[in-house]
Design a binder for these strands. Structure first.
Lengths: 304, 304
DNA sequence: GTGAAAGCGCTAACAA
DNA sequence: TTGTTAGCGCTTTCAC
């Protein structure tokens, strides 16, 4: 026959909708769009559906989505926090809606989470640059108190301190989300004296913008400045010079978070302790990084 | 109070869920991820929710999603067809679920649709290359009978014929979805004798791969070969050389398709004739294209 | 085994 | 105005 049971009626009866919500900032960012795919693939494979909610980094929009999650009675929520306002999480938490935090922790809540090892990823990048002889290493990163960002900064500072290099706040530049912000940020960095010979720019999108900004400033990458990114999005291996970057298993994060959430939903235990998965990051060395050469010192000194 | 009405109950009562479905191939592709954003922004702004379904270019998966749309009783579906199998559309159509086709037509169905002007976009790119003096112009495009693709081919052929250049099937190479496929495809093109001096590669992702492939082959872009893309995704302006490309208003397509669908849902008319919107494409000239020079003829002749 | 009935939470219709 | 009720389509229970 041509019969399909109405989910609305089943949901009303069972008090479960076989739907989960995914709240994240913006699919336009390639990193998030891979995450979405990891989530959707898993959710579909297990017979569930996905409600997609893009917060656009706005707290008010996240609040609205939390209300929607509640009235739509989703069975659980995957949450990529994008602001410092955790009230939407609190709303869901009170309603006992299972939540899995992705990519960053939600301060003040004991939640399941799937994270990447941002600290060690960042440190690995800096170690590598140090090994190439770089001593003046900049960091371009979005200004944020979200744990993924703070961990990257911590990894950067730790690796430098390990090498006995003292902290220089001028080398840390506020980045953003897009290519233009990378272009802008590197120009700021290039004005410093002595000029940094390498930079860790996060995420990849910003690093790609930074490369472009350096080229526009008449420099060669990596000839005059080395650039390392963060995330390893597909385009990073295809540009020229290809981008050395800290690869994160983003699709995998989406998959694992979705699996964790669906497991929790189906377990329905009264007592549970939050699970916390930290996935490894690893450095992928490509063409945008190179050893310090004479060219650096020649240029870095005088003509600015 | 802390009261939020249960959507499942309201849905059962009203026979509408205030949810629409979006079926599209893959968020990993930047073009589609912008489309998703255009749709989600609009759907959210009007108080609706979005069920995201990624078909992965698989007909079986699209069929499964059609069944889900039916049992979830979504109020309408935005459909980016990805295969030649239109049976999922037929399922939805029979159930009288409003459908808006995006980016490509669904052959055999009278549907609302929001398209881009692929024909004129493609033709504009070729005209521009012709104006630069190119005569041997390749085309890298996915092999597909979807209307967006066939229109691009038609625009390419038409513009060449207008210039009195006869059709050469060897210049049309099967591309794909990803960067690697662009890299592979251009190598095929570069083996031809005479070697093409320009190529229209679609989408941008493939064009970016093609640039990389040309560079890997020891050529300069645009010095030895000009490359034009299709879509204008954000990264295209940030790579070096930046990509000349046929810009499509993708976010706008998502927005207009969502608006059209929501309007249709709310109108609930018995009689209506399908609406068809074709959004203009326009060429964005950047650095990956240049005039034919001596370098081309010198290289194109002998050493292969 | 097979079949009828109650109820999930909401709202539209109707009664008071 | 305000309050009561019936029923959306499903499932589970309970009666036969």
């Amino acid at each position: 026959l041509d019969y399909a049971p109405l989910e609305a009626a089943r949901s009303l009866r069972h008090k479960r909708t076989r739907t989960i919500g995914l709240i994240l900032p913006d699919t336009t960012n390639p990193s998030y769009s891979i995450l979405v795919k990891g989530v959707e693939d898993t959710v579909f494979a297990q017979g569930w559906s996905l409600l997609l909610c893009l917060s656009g980094y706005e707290a008010t929009r996240e609040q609205a989505y939390a209300e929607i999650m509640i009235s739509k009675q989703v069975d659980g929520v995957l949450y990529v926090l994008s602001t410092t306002d955790t009230s939407p999480v609190a709303r869901l938490y009170k309603r006992q809606i299972p939540i899995v935090a992705i990519d960053r922790e939600v301060p003040g809540f004991k939640l399941d989470c799937v994270l990447a090892d941002n600290f060690n990823g960042s440190a690995a990048a800096i170690h590598y640059l140090l090994k190439l002889g770089h001593r003046h290493i900049g960091l371009i990163v979005r200004y944020s108190s979200l744990s993924n960002i703070t961990e990257r900064i911590r990894g950067y500072e730790w690796a430098l301190s390990q090498a006995g290099i003292e902290k220089n706040p001028a080398l840390v530049i506020a980045g953003g989300f897009g290519f233009e912000e990378g272009q802008r940020a590197i120009k700021e960095l290039l004005r410093l004296d002595p000029r940094p010979t390498a930079v860790l720019a996060s995420p990849d999108v910003v690093a790609i913008g930074a490369i472009r900004g350096a080229i526009d400033a008449g420099l060669q990458v990596p000839g005059h400045i080395s650039v390392v990114g963060f995330d390893d999005i597909p385009v990073s291996s295809s540009i020229s010079p290809s981008l050395t970057t800290v690869a994160l298993p983003i699709w995998e994060m989406g998959r694992m978070a979705a699996e964790m959430l669906l497991k929790r939903i189906q377990a329905q235990e009264e007592e549970w302790s939050p699970e916390r998965i930290v996935l490894p990051a690893h450095l992928v060395i490509r063409e945008s990084t190179g050893a310090v050469t004479e060219a650096h010192s020649l240029l870095a000194g005088g003509d600015e």
